[in-house]
Design a protein around this nucleic acid. Structure first.
Lengths: 230, 230
DNA sequence: GTCTATATAATGATAGAC
DNA sequence: GTCTATCATTATATAGAC
């Protein structure tokens, strides 16, 4: 029965999404968090009724507060983006090539919902995914620039293209892995991500420090091809 | 209208999926191909009615032939896998690191439906995606082994892990790119794929021949970490 | 083999009482 | 603010005529 008349917080403030159970929030906020969790767990096909049930309210109230399912999702996106920005700000120190962000995510169980939501959004191609990835690419460009200046990263002929390539590869591989091996219990998502990162460290670092091809032939062919106007 | 009493082919034989218009097939085969095309274009949420309409038959007939939507999809998966195996066999000569397969796909407009279907399957995490990727990884292991033996590919401490890492990265990045920038007209899928491959050639070849990190430090830390039992 | 008509279930959204 | 009841739509799947 869950007493639905809890504390009347001013709402509005961005709090991190979490599994139902976190009460003491406005009904609106509880609905938003429940929606984010459902979306993370079972994708954006989750029904309004299920969300309402998780939040301990009626389906009608969901519509009353958000107008439509699409607007509810928009609210989730907005809130997630705020949460992500906060997490990034908190971890801005030790980010290396955009990779440790996910490591950080994977380490904190509490952020499983955020991670799941982002993955679902990528799977869906939603607006949040675009923005999230653009941010990641921008960050990667910055890290690369610093690394090259410091002499620890080899320079590229097209830093932007490399940053995008590396970011899409890392995120895409993670997305694919999780899609292929979805956790039985959504709470296990973080550990799956951790496992995947663990399994890819060695081949990634080998590739990053020793390369993959012994000859420069393919690269030079590519450069020659690209410098001749077709 | 579309005369529904076309040629009575023995059915069964695996033909490549293609947009509606290819008649002269059993109704069952036409339904299967129409379904594959719809699934490729708009995902597995496509309705049986839409598929039936594309195939020029009633929704009831679809159920009559396949029993359920799930079984219809199974039939599509099976047929696609057969088509993919045939395409691979045809191109087995020039495959390099599992990458030229997609290049080949992208080059042939006629295979847009196959490519779209595989991407949708990856997005969905369906059984076909698993099998398809396992094949790609196995192939990549083989190519790497040959390349290492021939001295053109640098050896890895864990060939299987590297093959999986490279395959998941390549396919995942492509999947993410297409998800983020879906073609307005599904016929444009092939050109989008081609565009993405084009944009990633340079950074990929740079990374493969020149690496990314100037110091061996990170790799050696990783090796040290992995050789110590926690 | 093929169709039409219908059963059944789930969904997003609305209306109005409290 | 919150609920219940209901609508309208859409979906899969079935039944039975031709």
């Amino acid at each position: 029965m869950r007493s639905a008349k809890g504390g009347q917080n001013p709402a509005g403030s961005a709090s991190n999404a979490s599994p139902p159970g976190s009460s003491d929030l406005t009904a609106r906020a509880r609905i938003r968090d429940a929606a984010a969790f459902r979306f993370a767990v079972e994708g954006f096909g989750a029904s309004v009724r299920a969300i309402a049930s998780d939040a301990g309210v009626s389906a009608g109230l969901v519509m009353h507060h958000f107008g439509s399912k699409a607007k509810l999702r928009d609210a989730c996106d907005e809130n997630m983006l705020a949460t992500i920005r906060r997490l990034k700000r908190e971890n801005v120190a030790e980010a290396a090539a955009g990779q440790s962000l996910f490591d950080k995510f994977a380490a904190a169980e509490e952020n499983a919902a955020v991670l799941g939501y982002v993955l679902r959004s990528m799977q869906d191609g939603g607006p949040l995914a675009r923005e999230f990835i653009d941010h990641m690419v921008d960050d990667a460009v910055g890290y690369s620039r610093e690394g090259v200046a410091a002499g620890v990263i080899v320079p590229s002929r097209d830093e932007a293209a490399r940053a995008r390539y590396l970011t899409l590869s890392a995120l895409g591989a993670l997305l694919l892995e999780v899609t292929l091996n979805p956790p039985a219990d959504p709470a296990d998502l973080a550990s799956i991500v951790r496992g995947y990162l663990r399994s890819s460290y060695l081949p990634m670092l080998e590739l990053f420090t020793e390369g993959y091809l012994t000859s420069r032939r393919a690269l030079e062919d590519c450069l020659a091809y690209m410098s001749t106007p077709p």
